[in-house]
Design a protein around this nucleic acid. Structure first.
Lengths: 160, 160
DNA sequence: GATCCACTGGTCATTTTGACTAAAATCTAG
DNA sequence: CTAGATTTTAGTCAAAATGACCAGTGGATC
């Protein structure tokens, strides 16, 4: 099963929404809250976990609590022949929180966290030195306006 | 207590790292794995939860499992006088997964999820019509190269 | 030397878990 | 419409985990 094929139904969505409020809530409470049998919730949760419909888990720690209060996006252009090496190298850099490949001039958009502007400079240098990367451009994140969420989308699905 | 002041110690990091593997693991198992008394882990977990060091929880569901297989970044320029209205309007759009304010020409960088390119167009239109937003530019995400993670950073802290 | 603090290792009653049932309800296809 | 498949329910069980306690220990700080 993979995320491309598995589609959530209303029950899945309700479970996930409830889990949104507290990810460690006991299954029994969930079942009560949702008016489902415990076994149902238990089965659904197992199915979800194995379905590939969930993002890989990451501790919910804020970079700021690790002294990494300075975040930025680094856009990188690269020699596309060495894409895979570049990615492998980026994966080794702990300050790289995330990386996506967008369409357009920017080949890779990399999210990083640093302790201060100086450290940010160091990290972006480290990225620029990754094999295949030809150019980078760094843009500090001034404010986290809407933190990542899927809740609203889940709610929307439930409505229609 | 807030995320700016609270700093993790080695024990916190070990707990978070263990929680990384399985966010719903029982406290008792955690304590065993880490060689700590149960009470200690219990206290730490409570403290973490109230410290503001954790990101707001979001269900780990992948947009793709909600039929939102098409992701994109929408960069928006705006009349900065109406920043707050713009943000409030964006928050209402379920397809908006995240939004940050970077330094530079782009005032807001908005991450969206859509069902297909057509839907993506609709969403970016919706964003363009938000109060104060003067210009948008949409760039599809071709590949999620490194999914969001803080694990490596946590590990790095533990090393030095 | 006294005080504070976090951690330990222990208790307790209560709740939750995982792994099972069998029966009812719901879906699906011929 | 009906037979078969699948899900959900509601129930069981022993084992484990929970939250809320406790007194005792060891390290810092004053």
């Amino acid at each position: 099963m993979n995320s491309d094929t598995y589609q959530l139904d209303e029950t899945d969505r309700r479970i996930l929404l409830a889990l949104d409020a507290d990810p460690r809530v006991p299954i029994m409470m969930l079942a009560q809250q949702l008016g489902l049998a415990r076994g149902t919730v238990q089965t659904r949760l197992e199915r979800l976990a194995h379905s590939g419909a969930l993002r890989p888990n990451t501790s919910r720690i804020l970079p700021a609590a690790m002294g990494r209060g300075v975040s930025a996006f680094v856009s990188a252009e690269l020699n596309q022949a060495s894409l895979n090496e570049a990615i492998a190298a980026l994966r080794q850099i702990p300050e790289v929180l995330e990386c996506v490949a967008p369409a357009g001039d920017t080949d890779l958009l990399i999210r990083v966290a640093a302790t201060d502007p100086d450290d940010l400079y160091r990290v972006s240098e480290e990225i620029r030195l990754c094999p295949g990367i030809t150019r980078t451009s760094t843009s500090m994140i001034l404010r986290d306006v809407i933190p990542f969420r899927t809740t609203e989308l889940l709610k929307k699905l439930s409505k229609d």
